[in-house]
Deep mutational scan, measured.
Amino acid sequence: TTIHVGDLTLKYDNPKKAYEIAKKLAKKYNLTVTIKNGKITVT
Rank of each mutant, 00 (worst) to 15 (best):
T41R: 07
K27N: 06
K23N: 09
T2L: 10
K36L: 14
T9G: 04
Y19A: 06
I3Y: 01
N14Q: 05
K23R: 13
A18W: 06
K16W: 14
V33M: 11
V33F: 07
P15W: 15
V5H: 05
Y29F: 11
A18G: 03
K36Y: 11
K27G: 04
K16Q: 13
T2N: 05
K27M: 10
Y12V: 10
K17E: 11
T41F: 15
I3S: 02
K16T: 11
H4L: 12
I35V: 12
K16E: 12
L31S: 02
H4I: 14
A26W: 05
T2W: 07
V5W: 15
A18F: 05
E20G: 07
N14F: 06
L25R: 01
G6M: 08
A22N: 00
E20Y: 14
T1K: 05
A18H: 01
G6K: 03
H4W: 09
D13A: 10
G6A: 05
K28F: 11
N37G: 11
D7Y: 12
D7I: 12
T43R: 12
K11D: 08
K28Y: 10
K36F: 11
T32I: 14
V5P: 02
Y12F: 15
L31E: 00
E20C: 09
I21T: 06
T43N: 07
K16S: 10
A22F: 08
N30M: 07
I35M: 09
Y19S: 04
T43Q: 11
V33Y: 03
G38D: 07
K16N: 08
I3K: 02
H4M: 12
A26E: 02
K17S: 07
V33N: 00
K39T: 15
K11N: 12
K27F: 09
P15A: 12
Y12K: 01
N14P: 03
L31T: 02
V42R: 00
N14R: 03
L10T: 03
L31N: 00
L25M: 07
A18C: 09
G6I: 08
V33L: 14
Y29L: 04
G6V: 06
G38K: 05
A22K: 00
K39D: 12
K24Y: 15
K36V: 14
K39G: 07
K24G: 06
G38S: 08
E20F: 13
I40Q: 01
Y29A: 01
I21W: 11
K11G: 06
A18P: 01
D13H: 06
K28I: 09
T32K: 10
I40A: 01
T2H: 07
K11Y: 15
K17R: 11
Y12N: 02
G6N: 04
H4V: 14
L25G: 00
V42A: 04
N14I: 07
E20Q: 14
A18D: 00
A22H: 00
T1S: 10
G6S: 04
K11T: 15
T1R: 06
P15F: 15
D7V: 10
A26F: 06
I3G: 02
N14A: 04
N14V: 05
V33H: 00
K36T: 13
T41K: 06
D13P: 09
K17L: 14
T2Q: 07
T43M: 13
T9P: 03
V33W: 04
T9K: 10
I3C: 12
T34M: 11
N30L: 05
K24M: 15
V5T: 02
T41W: 15
K36G: 11
V33A: 03
I35C: 10
T34K: 11
I35Q: 04
D7L: 09
A26C: 07
K23M: 15
T1P: 06
Y12Q: 02
K28C: 10
L8I: 11
A18T: 02
K24T: 08
L25H: 00
T32Y: 07
N37S: 09
I35K: 05
K39W: 12
V42H: 01
Y19N: 04
Y12S: 04
T34I: 14
T32E: 07
G38T: 06
A26D: 00
K28E: 06
Y29K: 02
L10A: 03
I40S: 01
T43I: 11
D7S: 15
A26Q: 04
L8W: 10
V33I: 14
K28H: 07
L25V: 05
K27T: 07
L8S: 03
Y19Q: 05
V33S: 00
I3D: 02
K16A: 13
N30T: 04
L31G: 05
L31Q: 01
G38W: 06
I3P: 02
A26V: 03
I40H: 01
L25W: 06
K28N: 04
T34F: 11
T43Y: 13
I3M: 06
L8E: 03
K17D: 09
K23S: 08
L8K: 07
T41A: 07
K24D: 05
H4T: 15
Y29W: 08
K28S: 04
L31A: 05
H4A: 08
E20L: 13
I3H: 03
K27E: 09
K17F: 11
N14C: 07
L31I: 04
K39F: 14
K11H: 15
A22D: 00
K11S: 13
G38N: 11
L25D: 00
G38H: 07
Y29M: 02
K16L: 12
T2E: 10
V33C: 05
G38C: 04
T32A: 08
V42C: 05
K23P: 00
K28G: 01
T43H: 13
D13Q: 07
T1L: 12
T9V: 15
P15H: 09
I35T: 05
T9L: 13
H4F: 11
Y19L: 15
T32F: 09
T9D: 07
H4Y: 12
K23G: 05
K39H: 15
I21C: 10
P15M: 13
I21F: 15
T9I: 15
T43F: 12
L31W: 06
K24R: 13
Y19M: 14
P15T: 08
G38P: 01
I40R: 01
Y19V: 07
D7W: 14
V42I: 14
G38E: 04
I3W: 01
K28W: 10
